[in-house]
Design a protein around this nucleic acid. Structure first.
Lengths: 267, 267
DNA sequence: TGTAATTGTCTCTTACAAGAGACGCCTGTA
DNA sequence: TACAGGCGTCTCTTGTAAGAGACAATTACA
């Protein structure tokens, strides 16, 4: 990538771009940070706190927030000095769904699958080099194994991650997976080579199962959805108790693969 | 000079120059225009055309689009040189839904109502001073009376518009309704006073029916959803053939009002 | 009551983003 | 083969938006 040796002339600025937004950040970037911040907090937040949260000057934040509220991308929340996402973003999101066959059909298929099996079902995609739950349907179990939609999880933690990376070469995979991503929630550390091997296995098998990776009580079954031959655009996955019998697991995998194939674009 | 009297001082508030975005426009504004433009076109568009569409310099547009694509707000469409809304906007939109009880329940209620009655049902809200179809469910009629979600229609054209403006005083209403808005699709011109009178009637009746306003073949039944006593936050509406019998219409209105009331926040 | 923190607004400066325009690369067509 | 047109990138200039900071007005304790 075009990383910045060209900019080496600049004395003090250089590598702090992803972390702390330094000084004199572009307004648009600030806005993008604001949106992302609201996405992670998942709730309305005061403008002052928002400024702290994205590490932006207060005055700038007020200006930007006003623009965004006027535009309808953000809305003032009930009590009056908090902001959260606005109707416009919802409308744009619906436009995205409408323009995206895969997502539209995938949502239906996921809803259907979870009703049919009673298990939590999800549609997952790559989003900016990260694994993202694009849609999920909770299933009927008493305890809800639920992850919020839009949640971003390190790729190595998931079965879907192994399928989604099937099309990429080693360099690209290394690029997407940070060191931290290889550390599982329970503290175990995955070796990158093992992960890449997993990807190859998943690719040729056409499905992937992981047990107790994200948490100790579930296993995750995933099957690829292709947008073109060999190109994994998304995965459908089922989250089931880790002690599910192997016969039942096999049945679910078969079902899952069939449904995922149905979603795939026939070449 | 940029002092108080905020209302009078601003000559043309929200609708600045929708036409020619002058020279040296702020990047964020350009972005907002881009999003709005994509929302109206409802399809992927080339960057060059996009620049023309929002009347922005090509080089600037390329820069902005790249930022937005990197951020995931936009995505390159299939053939590679077109852009449309991206996954991030969908995710943000889902966040909005999650944080918004009314919308979430309203969507369900609308879906349910259209299945129950077989008629097209919609949830409508004010959005930046305009009437907006926030969610719609098509109904089962052979010919589909359908308006796309997110469509913005002049307030005077609709039954919902009359209810949504119930809480506003004359000045506010005049502010929201332009001269053009008073001209119906068939060319007839509504008098502002008549419209305001309609609003008062709708307010006290607790529902509103319009016949043949948007098109000659349908009538629109609407009932208010309150977020607080007297505050109309949204409307539910049914779009039925204009020759629907008055008994059936009455039944549907009763049903609609009941469902809308159920959505309202109990004070 | 005082003191401290927060909130929303406003002013002024200057670092820098928006924009004009040129460039090379395609693709189509005459 | 030449020409027209669109696309994507790059450079350079200058108008202006981001930011520092001051301000009054709330709230929040103690």
């Amino acid at each position: 990538m075009q990383d910045g040796n060209a900019l080496a002339a600049r004395p003090d600025v250089g590598l702090d771009e992803d972390k702390t937004s330094g000084s004199r950040e572009k307004g648009l970037n600030r806005v993008l940070q604001i949106l992302e911040f609201l996405h992670t907090t998942q709730r309305a937040i005061g403008v002052g706190d928002l400024a702290k949260g994205v590490n932006a000057p207060r005055s700038t934040t007020y200006t930007l927030v006003r623009s965004l509220v006027d535009a309808g991308l953000l809305e003032m929340a009930g009590d009056g000095n908090r902001v959260y996402f606005g109707k416009k973003l919802y409308l744009y999101g619906m436009d995205y769904v409408r323009g995206n066959d895969l997502l539209r059909r995938g949502r239906q298929e996921v809803d259907h699958l979870s009703r049919e099996t009673g298990e939590t079902s999800e549609l997952c995609m790559l989003q900016g080099g990260r694994y993202t739950i694009v849609h999920s349907s909770p299933g009927t179990r008493p305890f809800r194994i639920s992850s919020a939609t839009g949640l971003q999880i390190p790729l190595p933690w998931t079965a879907s991650g192994r399928l989604l990376l099937a099309g990429f070469d080693r360099a690209a995979i290394e690029d997407m997976v940070s060191e931290d991503d290889l550390v599982l929630p329970d503290g175990r550390r995955l070796r990158l080579d093992d992960f890449i091997a997993d990807i190859a296995v998943a690719k040729s098998a056409g499905y992937c199962v992981t047990s107790g990776l994200v948490d100790a009580y579930t296993k995750c079954l995933a099957a690829p959805v292709f947008s073109a031959p060999g190109r994994v655009e998304a995965t459908m996955c089922l989250v089931v108790p880790i002690d599910t019998s192997s016969e039942k697991t096999d049945d679910l995998i078969a079902l899952l693969r069939e449904r995922a194939a149905r979603l795939s674009i026939a070449a």
